[in-house]
Amino acid sequence: MLLIANDLNAYIPVGILLLMAVAFPIINLIGTSLLGPSRRGKEKDAAYESGMTPIDTARKRFNVRFYILAMTFLVFDVEIIFLYPWAVSYTQLDPQSGEASLFLGRILFFIATSVIAYIYAWRKGVFRWE
């Protein structure tokens, strides 16, 4: 027997799928670079800037709000990741045992902490783009 019956069996097709998905763009990229023509030139090599000669590089400093937004996103995304296992185990608790109310209270407190951060960010104007 190659396959032993356990939970990890289900990941074998995912692995095959990943291999196929990685192979597909590689084959396409190699194939098209072999098949297509290739001519170069000074004007053709330049970056597209609506027909003008490109001014300077594109990789310059950009607005700091993108960083702030990414940090705010991180706060919420990590919170949501913690909520997934909670959501699954919470529904399987016995409502009579008192554990459910404990779980609910804990998660309310947990969400409240990030809601405070959210309100702070809102008042600071993180979400105002004008």
Binding site: L29, T32, L35, P37, S38, A46, A47
Partner: peptide, 12 residues
């Protein structure tokens, strides 16, 4: 058509 088009990589 897309497959036989030139696979161009600009300078820079």
């Amino acid at each position: 058509k897309l497959f036989v088009k030139e696979d161009f990589i600009p300078a820079g």
